[in-house]
C-alpha cells in the first residue's frame, strides 16, 4: 500500500536521527554524571570532570527536546499516546533532568563538601534515571503495550517493568556508562583518566553483553526481520563488542567512536524493529499506531521537512565547532585554571 518513499517514513527516520543525536551526545554526558564521584576523588578532579561536559551538555540535551517536539508535530498520536501512557515513568525522567540540570550550576557556588556532595548525587541520580528509562520506554513500545481504540494506554506503571523492557533499560544505562568512560579518557588527565579507563574495561564488556542479549531477544520476538533490522542489529553487536575490546587494550579514541556507533545502531535497531509501527498494541495488531495513522497532515510534514533540512545541518556545524573550541583536555590547564587565580572564577 505504502512504499518506503513517503513523508511519514522520512519523518520516522528523522525522529530516529534525533534520538541517535541525543543518545550519542547526551549518552556520554549521562555517563560522566554517573561516574563523577568514582573517577574524581577531590574537588579539583571533580571540577575537571564536570568541566569536561560543562560547555556542551545543555546543547546536547536540546536533541531530546527536538525529538519530543518533532514527534509532537510529525506524529501527534504517537506523542499523545506515549507521553500520557508513560506518565509516571516520564515524571521520573523529568525529575532526573531537572535535578541534573541545576546541579551543574549549583555545584560550584558554595565551598562546602556537603553542599557539593548533594549536587554530585543529584548529577548521578539525575543521569541514571533518564539513561535507564529511555531504554525501558523504547523496549516497551517495541514489545507492545495495551492500547485502546483511540490509541490510549490502558496498562499501569508496573506493566512497563517487564523483563524485556528492564533489559532494554539496563542496555542504555550500561552504554551510557561505557560511553562516558571513553569520553572521560579523551578529555582528562591522569589519575582521572586512569580511573575512567579502569571503569571502561568493566563497563565495556557488560554493555556489550547487554546489547547482544537485548538485540537477540528483539530479533527472536520480531515477526518479520527486515534487511535494515538485520544490519542495525549486527552493527550494534559488532560495534559494542569492538568498543569493549578497544577499551581493554587502551585505545580510548577508537573505543569512543566504536561505542558511539554501537549506540547509534542500538537506536536504529529500535526504529527498524518498530517500523511501520510507532507503538505496538499488545492485544493484537488492530490498534497499533503506525507511521501512517499517527502522522500529521501532508502540509505540516512538508513544512517540517524543509525546516529540518535547512536547520539540522546548521546545528551540526556549530555544535561540531563547539567541540573543536573545547577540544583540549581539562584539568591541569582547563578553562578555569587558565584564569588569574585572584578572580574567584567558578566558585
Amino acid at each position: 500500500m505504502h512504499g518506503l518513499w513517503n513523508l511519514q517514513t522520512l519523518w520516522f527516520v528523522l525522529v530516529c536521527v534525533l534520538w541517535v543525536g541525543f543518545m550519542f551526545l547526551e549518552g556520554f554526558d549521562f555517563g560522566v554524571g554517573m561516574l563523577l564521584q568514582l573517577v574524581g576523588k577531590n574537588p579539583e578532579e571533580r571540577r575537571a570532570v564536570i568541566h569536561s561536559i560543562g560547555p556542551v551538555w545543555d546543547g546536547n540535551e536540546v536533541w531530546l527536546l527536538t525529538a519530543g517536539g518533532a514527534t509532537f508535530a510529525a506524529f501527534p498520536n504517537w506523542y499523545a499516546s506515549m507521553f500520557s501512557g508513560f506518565y509516571l515513568a516520564l515524571l521520573l525522567v523529568l525529575l532526573g533532568l531537572i535535578i541534573r540540570g541545576v546541579s551543574f550550576e549549583f555545584w560550584g557556588k558554595v565551598e562546602s563538601s556537603r553542599w557539593r556532595g548533594v549536587w554530585e548525587w543529584a548529577m548521578a541520580v539525575g543521569s541514571f534515571l533518564p539513561a535507564l528509562l529511555v531504554g525501558v520506554a523504547f523496549a516497551n513500545i517495541i514489545r507492545g503495550v495495551s492500547l485502546d481504540v483511540h490509541g490510549n494506554y490502558t496498562g499501569s506503571f508496573f506493566d512497563l517493568l517487564n523483563p524485556y523492557a528492564l533489559l532494554g533499560g539496563v542496555t542504555t544505562l550500561l552504554l551510557c556508562i561505557a560511553h562516558g568512560a571513553s569520553f572521560l579518557q579523551l578529555k582528562t588527565f591522569d589519575p582521572v583518566r586512569a580511573r575512567a579507563a579502569a571503569i571502561g574495561r568493566i563497563a565495556g564488556p557488560l554493555a556489550a553483553l547487554a546489547v547482544i542479549g537485548f538485540v537477540i531477544w528483539t530479533l527472536a520476538d520480531a515477526s518479520t526481520i527486515s534487511v535494515g533490522l538485520w544490519i542495525a542489529a549486527i552493527v550494534a553487536m559488532g560495534a559494542v563488542a569492538a568498543a569493549a575490546g578497544l577499551a581493554a587494550v587502551g585505545r580510548s579514541g577508537w573505543a569512543f567512536i566504536s561505542g558511539g556507533l554501537g549506540i547509534a545502531a542500538v537506536v536504529a535497531t529500535w526504529f527498524f524493529a518498530l517500523y511501520p509501527n510507532v507503538m505496538v498494541d499488545s492485544n493484537g495488531s488492530a490498534y497499533n499506531l503506525t507511521v501512517f495513522n499517527a502522522a500529521s497532515n501532508h502540509y505540516t510534514l512538508v513544512v517540517m521537512t524543509v525546516t529540518a533540512l535547512i536547520l539540522v545541518p546548521i546545528v551540526l556545524i556549530y555544535q561540531i565547532w563547539t567541540y573543536y573550541v573545547f577540544r583540549q583536555r581539562v584539568g591541569r590547564s582547563g578553562p578555569t585554571e587558565s584564569a588569574p587565580p585572584t578572580t574567584g572564577a567558578g566558585v
Binding site: T66, G69, F72, A73
Partner: peptide, 9 residues
C-alpha cells in the same frame, strides 16, 4: 507541534 519543534531547532 510545528512551532514547538521549530523553536527547538
Amino acid at each position: 507541534g510545528a512551532p514547538l519543534a521549530v523553536e527547538a531547532l
